[in-house]
Every structure is written in structure tokens, then in C-alpha cells.
Design a protein around this nucleic acid. Structure first.
Lengths: 199, 199
DNA sequence: GTATTGACATAGCGGTCACTATGTGAATTA
DNA sequence: TAATTCACATAGTGACCGCTATGTCAATAC
């Protein structure tokens, strides 16, 4: 079970990379993107910035890698819901609500990070394109999930956007004061957003 | 109509303060809280940092002053809605939706700023208390507006929190891609959030 | 065993930023 | 008019940060 005392070069490198990423996730969660320094990220992983820069081109790429992992996780989770629930919308929505609740419980440190990075990217066209692409893929996965109940694809996309917006905002508020946003709220708000508009 | 060529000392000071605040609002909107520098704020107002620091104790106070003005504006607007619509909930909600739409149109530069500052304040207890106080006063104003339709005051507060969360998130998304969040969405999402939960 | 590679460390560069100590001159007061 | 005040300017200061140039030594290749 314990790691081999001697790792091959490749294995050691992969391990270092993972340690750096885990450290970055921690530091960004605690101090934000602008607030977290690459020195601290490296130090907490047990390395120096030299190591960090031999694995990542810079702070941006470090964050984008974490962002990618996260989006990929969401996509996988949603895909599983779709496969598992088939055409049973109610079950799918319930499972999605549960998923959001779980994420809210376990990843609240990420709250606000995406929007901070998004704002930071606003004035950097290349970066903005990358962030936008990832956000849109997440949005469209949700839109697919709810498209059967929406009048149109465009409407499903807008509702998905609203779901993401709501989720991010609630997550932030939950971080400030957990008591004011019990986890069940996520599922409840989702149900209301998905209710058919009556006019 | 034109300002007097000679201002009294007090009038000149007040004018300087307003110019600095307007400049700060612009710079923060463009570059965020961390990203905007006090030097640039002073320069854009036509002054130097010496002037800025003779009016405000620092960057935090500058932002908090703007934040106060903003919250005060919201409270005033909501109060007007309450007074104007009386017990007619539908009219009040429609007016509130209109208000949100107007704000979305005119103040999208503010998007993300509050949550950035909130996160920044998370590790500064004194600052966090001030920000939280202002946010709660805004939340409670909205909660009062919708309390008649909510099963309890606590529920009204949670719904108000969700409304704020949704609004901030949509505003951010609208800034990234205005086409993806037409203004009418704000009123629509509000209506759905206010719909009675059916189970 | 010798040569080569490359993962990571060390030290520092250039830049920015919030904030301060101090100066100055015009408005105010007496 | 002479003295005083104070709004604002000038010129730093120290700290931090992202990033890079370069060194080192152990793992690998031959």
C-alpha cells in the first residue's frame, strides 16, 4: 500500500504534478486566484517554484488545468445521470439536485473562483476564449439534461445558464454563512427554476 | 448652470470626493477590486494619490463607500415599490422584475465585484462583518417584499438569497456574452423562483 | 563506468501596489 | 497683510509577485 521507496522518473514526475495540483486547489480555494501565490502553492506541495514551472507554463495554466478537471467531472456526472435515468425526467432532475447538493457540500471552497477568473480573463482574449469554451460545455450538458422540458434549445441554454448562476451564487453565500443556505436549498431552487413558466 | 469659477474650500473638497468616487466606480468596474489600483483611480479623477488618501483611509473604505451607496439605492428602490404597489403582490413583483432588468442594463460593470470583495473579506473579520451587514440588509428588503407569499420569514430570506445569487450570476454571464442573457431573463427567472413549490 | 538527460532548487529581476512622509501654495482667518 | 490652515502634490518605501536564468545531482542510457 505504501508508495515504493524508489519511483521511476516518470512516476515521480506524475506524483509531483498531482501534489502541485492538489496544493493549487487548496491555495486557490483559500485565497482566491489573484490572492494565491505560486510560491505558496509550490511550498505547500513540498517543492519550490522551479518545480512548478517545470510542470506548468504559469499560473494561468495551473488554474485552467484544475478548471478542466472540474468541468470534466461535472460532465461525467451528468452523463451518468442521463444514462441511469433514461427518459425519466423526474428521476433525472432529482438525481441532478442530489449531485448539486453533494458538490455544494464538498466543494464550497471553489465558490467565487470561477467568476473571479472569468473577470480576470475578460481583458485577455485568449484566456477568455478558453474559459468560455469550458463554461459553455458545462452549460450545454445541463441544457441537454433539461431540454425535454424546455420549449426550445435556446431556452434550455438560458435555463441552464440560470441554474449555473444560481448555484455559484448560493455556494458563495453558503461559504459566508452556511446556516443561511442549507444544502437542500439547491434542490429546491432547481425545482423552481425548472417549473414551467405560466405566461 | 456651469459651476462657479471659484469654489469655496468645502465645496471643492466635496466635489473632489465625488470625482474620486465616480472614478473608483469606473476603475473597479473595469478591472475588479484587486485589479484596480488607487493610483489609477486618483489619476482618472484628475488627482494624485495624495488627494485620495486625504479623503479615504484606504482602498477598502473607498470600495465600502461605493457599496453603501449602491445598497442604499436598492433599498430606496424597493421601498418605492412597496409604497407604490401596496398589497398588490403581482404588481410589486412585476415592478421588482423591471427594476432588476434596469439594473442589469445599466450596471453590468458591477458584476462579480461584490463576490470578489466578499471573498477578499472572508479572511478579514472586521471587513467581513461590514460587508455581511450590508448584504443582509439588502436581502431582508427583498425578503420583506416577498414575505407574503412565503411560508415563513426564514423561507422568504432563503428565497431572497437565491434571487440575489441568481441575479449576480446572470449579470456576470451577461457581461461575458450579452446575447446569452437577454434582459427579459431576469424577470422570468424571478417569476419562477417566486412560484410556489409544489411539494 | 561514463555521458547525458532532466526534475527540481537557488537566487534574483523587473514590475506593481498600497500606503506614507513631507512639501507647497492657495484659501481662510485675524 | 500677516499668520494659519489644509487640500492636494511629490517622491519615496517596503513588500510582494510572477517569472526566468542558471546550477546541481540523481536517474537513465549507452
Amino acid at each position: 500500500m505504501s508508495p515504493p521507496l524508489r519511483l521511476t522518473r516518470a512516476a515521480a514526475k506524475a506524483r509531483t504534478r498531482e501534489l502541485l495540483l492538489a496544493s493549487a486547489a487548496q491555495v486557490f480555494a483559500e485565497q482566491g486566484y489573484a490572492g494565491g501565490s505560486v510560491d505558496e502553492i509550490a511550498a505547500r506541495a513540498g517543492y519550490t517554484i522551479g518545480a512548478l514551472y517545470s510542470h506548468f507554463s504559469g499560473k494561468d495554466e495551473l488554474f485552467l488545468t484544475l478548471f478542466d478537471d472540474r468541468v470534466a467531472g461535472h460532465l461525467r456526472a451528468i452523463e451518468e445521470i442521463v444514462e441511469h435515468c433514461g427518459v425519466d425526467d423526474d428521476a433525472a432532475f432529482a438525481a441532478f439536485g442530489d449531485y448539486l447538493t453533494t458538490v455544494a457540500d464538498s466543494r464550497s471552497g471553489w465558490s467565487g473562483l470561477e467568476s473571479e477568473f472569468l473577470r480576470y480573463a475578460l481583458t485577455r482574449a485568449e484566456l477568455l476564449a478558453k474559459v468560455t469554451e469550458r463554461r459553455e460545455s458545462a452549460r450545454d450538458a445541463i441544457a441537454r439534461l433539461i431540454s425535454r422540458r424546455a420549449p426550445s434549445w435556446a431556452d434550455a441554454q438560458i435555463t441552464a445558464t440560470a441554474i449555473i448562476a444560481l448555484f455559484e451564487g448560493l455556494l458563495m453565500q453558503r461559504r459566508v454563512n452556511p446556516a443561511s443556505v442549507p444544502p437542500v436549498v439547491f434542490a429546491g431552487a432547481l425545482r423552481r427554476l425548472l417549473a414551467q413558466a405560466t405566461s
